[in-house]
Write a protein that binds this DNA or RNA. Structure first.
Length: 490
DNA sequence: ATGTGC
């Protein structure tokens, strides 16, 4: 979408990487908006509606402290992508636009015992096999055929369903946010239409920035932390899976945004942007949405679980060895489009409130000690996964205690676009993008050539800068940096 | 992001 006139809100500098839009900018603002960025990333945010949207979010009832735009923030539906907001669970609201259309879009990292030298000779075969076993592209269906009864189990139980059917290893769930099963999910709150869209899409990647990537560790920032995560050496091969809840989550979002739009007036909710459509948490509608959101989240974790199963199978075929012998374990799986109920300090006096944290294009980054973190990592903190785009680096970080003070325990989720999809298609011919990548030793398989242009490295911001700012502002500490050698896309 | 757009 092209906006003729972009309003740039007033900005107050708090520190080198922190800026504030004062609460006085709009009459409806209840708190300020905080922007975490360097001057370059901030300038980029001024070219679309990112800052205006971060300000608008503060008009939602029950919001505490400030709304947040992370270093990778860009314009989204209602909220910026890279947006965080915490609402009081009694006086506040839930806004589906603050979670996003792709509910529990997220990232899963697998480790291997293999090095780049082991994998190079088999890379083409490996990428082709993954492309065959995990279909990519809009509307693409997977290899599984589920009954509606099984689909309801996926929605209610998440990864537990997949494990009961033999898709994965019993220990896998210990390395997934919420252990792959969001408590309170209710399949009966998901529409039949959403179920029809989702029934045959488990085990597919989708399109856009979604991918399965074979990567090589190219820098280790903290050897002790890396070792604890199974990342032992430079040159080690990793697999990164980036996808979400496909058509099912999209339909859940669509359904409940409509519910909110239709009831806003009678709830007395008047907001500066209709895309902010919200439901008071005291209403049945809000509770139904949260139960459906959790079900869609379970679907997304199960999707990444089924994909993990097929990736392991692809490695088995390429290397003729059992995946457990190849060490294909899950490092961690994060949700970066989701809402969670958490306790947070909400003022300078140290008052703690139970809040609903909206994280849209934002990764939880809890520090050591929290019960939400798997036992194996509880003494070091939660792994944060920042996927790059096709051809650019990805990062593993670990949550820092200061993330609670600065961002409600949150870190960025990616690089964020710098060129619109249409601009990228105009400027970057797919064959040229592909040959540049191949000359750098990166094999790309894509369902559609236009995606190659849209997802070119040049279309994205600098992920190194995003990870660096996350560390400098106290959100999360860098552990390792990985670069791709094989990419499977939509 | 999305059986892709009022």
């Amino acid at each position: 979408m092209n906006y003729g006139l972009i309003m740039v809100p007033p900005l107050r500098k708090i520190s080198d990487y922190v800026w504030e839009i004062p609460k006085g900018y709009k009459p409806c603002m209840k708190v300020p908006a905080r922007i975490f960025a360097d001057e370059t990333l901030l300038e980029k945010m001024k070219t679309d509606m990112t800052l205006e949207q971060a300000a608008n979010v503060t008009c939602l009832p029950g919001i505490y402290k400030y709304s947040i735009a992370l270093p990778d923030a860009h314009q989204g539906y209602g909220f910026p992508v890279g947006g965080v907001a915490a609402m009081d669970i009694e006086q506040g609201v839930v806004s589906p636009g603050g979670i996003g259309y792709d509910i529990n879009c997220g990232v899963r990292l697998l480790r291997t015992n293999l090095t780049e030298k082991d994998v190079r000779p088999k890379l083409r075969e490996l990428v082709d096999t993954i492309f065959k076993l995990v279909p990519a592209g809009v509307g693409e269906t997977g290899l599984l055929r589920l009954s509606f009864g099984d689909l309801d189990k996926v929605l209610d139980d998440g990864v537990d369903w997949a494990l009961s059917k033999g898709y994965g290893w019993s220990d896998d769930k210990n390395f997934i946010e919420e252990f792959g099963h969001y408590e309170g999910a209710d399949s009966s709150k998901v529409s039949q239409r959403a179920k029809e869209r989702g029934k045959d899409e488990l085990g597919t990647t989708g399109s856009g920035n979604h991918f399965i990537e074979i990567q090589v560790v190219n820098k280790i920032f903290d050897a002790n932390l890396a070792k604890r995560l199974g990342i032992e050496q430079e040159g080690q091969v990793m697999v990164l899976i980036h996808t979400g809840s496909r058509g099912l989550g999209h339909q859940v979002a669509t359904d409940y945004i409509r519910v909110a739009e239709n009831k806003m007036k009678q709830w007395g909710l008047f907001l500066p942007d209709r895309e902010l459509a919200a439901m008071p948490l005291s209403t049945k509608e809000a509770q139904d949405y949260l139960a459906a959101m959790k079900a869609a989240a379970n679907y997304a974790w199960t999707n990444r679980q089924i994909i993990t199963h097929w990736v392991r199978e692809a490695f088995r075929r390429a290397f003729g060895k059992d995946p457990d012998k190849l060490g294909l374990e899950i490092v961690y799986d994060v949700a970066h489009n989701i809402a969670k109920i958490e306790d947070h300090v909400i003022d300078d006096e140290g008052h703690v409130r139970r809040v609903l944290v909206h994280r849209k294009g934002a990764t939880r980054s809890f520090p050591a000690g929290r019960l939400e973190i798997p036992p194996k990592y509880r003494d070091i903190g939660q792994p944060v996964l920042i996927p790059g785009s096709m051809g650019t680096a990805s990062y593993v970080l670990i949550g820092l205690p200061t993330s609670f003070q600065v961002t409600f325990g949150t870190a960025p989720h990616g690089a964020g676009r710098t060129l619109s999809r249409s601009a990228a298609v105009r400027m970057l011919p797919p064959n040229k993008v592909r040959s540049t990548l191949e000359s750098r030793g990166i094999i790309v398989r894509s369902a559609e050539s236009e995606i190659i242009s849209e997802e070119a490295p040049e279309a994205y911001k600098n992920v190194d800068k995003v990870a660096e700012i996350a560390e400098l502002t106290g959100m999360a500490k860098r552990v390792s940096r990985h670069t791709p050698i094989g990419v499977v896309k939509g």
